[in-house]
Amino acid sequence: MNAMTQEPASQTQDLRILSYAEAIREAMAIAMEADPTVILMGEDIGVYGGAFQVTLDLVDRFGTDRVMDTPISELGGAGVAVGAALTGLKPIFEFQFSDFAMLAMEQIVNQAAKLRYMLGGEASVPVVFRLPSGSGTGAAAQHSQSIEAWFGHVPGLKVLQPSTPEDAKGMLLAALADPDPVMIFEHKLLYKMKGHVPEGSYLTPIGKALVRRVGTDVTIVAGSIMLHRALEAAEKLSSEGINVEVIDLRSIRPIDHETILTSVRKTGRLMVVYEGVKAFGVGAEISAMVAESDAFDFLDAPILRLGAADAPVPYNPDLERASVPQVDTIEAAARRLTRREV
């Protein structure tokens, strides 16, 4: 695929607005038009259009041979995608909810992630897994999880988390261009979010975080929907004279150490905000990474993690909201951190 690697659009480009879901759909269509080996697989991705309407009308454009409804067979379906990727196809496999990837752990973790290594580099598994993820929909414990960190623990995988329509498209195209298995955690609450999306093909670099807001007092690292909550909190804090730098993590594996360390050396304070359960999560990895580095000497306050409550995602809407970081909790935590009231 011919494509240019690029960072977010500059002001000179067209300002075409698409939703996050539309951007992902456009990426799939571009890839399918350019490359006949790209196929889509998943449950109800045909006439139903996918549980979140991401594939919508792609079956009308590309037919049922390339937009394949699978039976409700996550382990088998993911395994078929892995086998097909091993032998010349480029499948994009949609899990209806990221939670159902657990039924396919064997194929993702024991097979897809390890095949290249086990075969001494003689094989390649260019499969892309798309995983609608996150809470906030009232779907409770088995349909609301944020399990991206689990896959951060698996060498052989790449794990992405787009926060904008532009990145959602660019990351999917980058994932397809990548010779190794890539998991893209899409946030359900972002599907309707609108934003500028460049035309044509472009690749969002895998493994690169991005400073979305420049600041001097505290660094907040957040991805996916948490980026937006962090930006909103930062905006509110700026009126109090607290100047927050916000980094969009974008990629959990590989993780962009340098962008984070550079920022921490500047601000001297670090907060990691994520939707997964706080313990053993993305925050632990980033905190440890900073603690192990020279940036540790620049810290003026302890590192702070904000993650989900130590519980499954509850059904009751108030409990559900209370169980994951929100704008006000991020705001309060950043205020505490900058005033060193930790």
Partner: peptide, 19 residues
């Protein structure tokens, strides 16, 4: 009560319709 996410529901509001 469970549907309404109430403490008196079968799952004390934690589960909802599906649980």
């Amino acid at each position: 009560a469970e549907f309404f996410g109430k403490e008196t529901g079968y799952c004390h509001g934690r589960g909802g319709s599906m649980h």
